[in-house]
């Protein structure tokens, strides 16, 4: 148990080992640890960001869906209104057409009646003249009484 130059040898060995450790062992391991730490941190941050974005997207989707529903309801409402309008219009048109046809038929009837009356009047006049001619035979001057007969016929 004596102190000798082993002391110096051990110190030098120690210094060399420390130098080697400091130069070749410590930095790569610590770098790897640091890199991994950073990667994990990045990964967690990315996951957080992803979750956030997903939330936003879900919210946006819900909004879009709601908007679409509102729009659809609006369109349906408009369509119903339009349908009612078209029905009303059609009804009005049909009524107008009906009225027109009715009026035309009435006018025709009127015209027919008028013509029949005219015909009848002419025939009655002729009949009256013929009758009077038969009754009066000679005395009756067709020319002198034609005026009178005409007047009578008009009264019919």
């Amino acid at each position: 148990m004596n102190i000798n130059a082993t002391l110096i040898g051990q110190s030098i060995t120690f210094a060399v080992f420390v130098w080697f450790c400091m130069r070749y062992i410590w930095p790569p391991i610590v770098n790897a640890l640091e890199t991994r730490r950073k990667q994990i941190a990045d990964g967690l941050a990315a996951a957080e960001r992803g979750r956030h974005e997903q939330e936003l997207a879900a919210k946006r989707a819900a909004e879009t869906l709601h908007e679409a529903k509102v729009k659809a309801a609006e369109i349906i409402g408009q369509a119903e209104k339009r349908a009612a309008q078209i029905i009303d219009e059609a009804k009005a048109a049909a009524k107008a057409e009906g009225d027109r046809l009715l009026a035309a038929a009435q006018a025709e009837i009127e015209q027919e009646a008028h013509r029949a009356r005219e015909q009848l009047r002419a025939q009655v006049a002729a009949l009256v003249v013929a009758g009077a001619e038969k009754v009066l035979r000679r005395e009756v001057d067709a020319k002198a009484h034609a005026e009178l007969l005409e007047a009578i016929a008009k009264e019919i």
């Binding site: 102190i3 000798n4 130059a5 082993t6 040898g9 051990q10 060995t13 080992f17 080697f20 450790c21 070749y24 062992i25 410590w26 930095p27 790569p28 391991i29």
Partner: peptide, 29 residues
């Protein structure tokens, strides 16, 4: 032998173990 002598066993074992340590850790590094 006085001061200028060496303990070969001390130096040998510590160098072998030190090199073993450095080798193994260097491998990991």
């Amino acid at each position: 032998m006085g001061f200028w002598s060496l303990h070969l066993d001390t130096l040998g074992v510590s160098i072998v173990l030190g090199v073993l340590f450095l080798y193994l850790f260097r491998k990991a590094a």
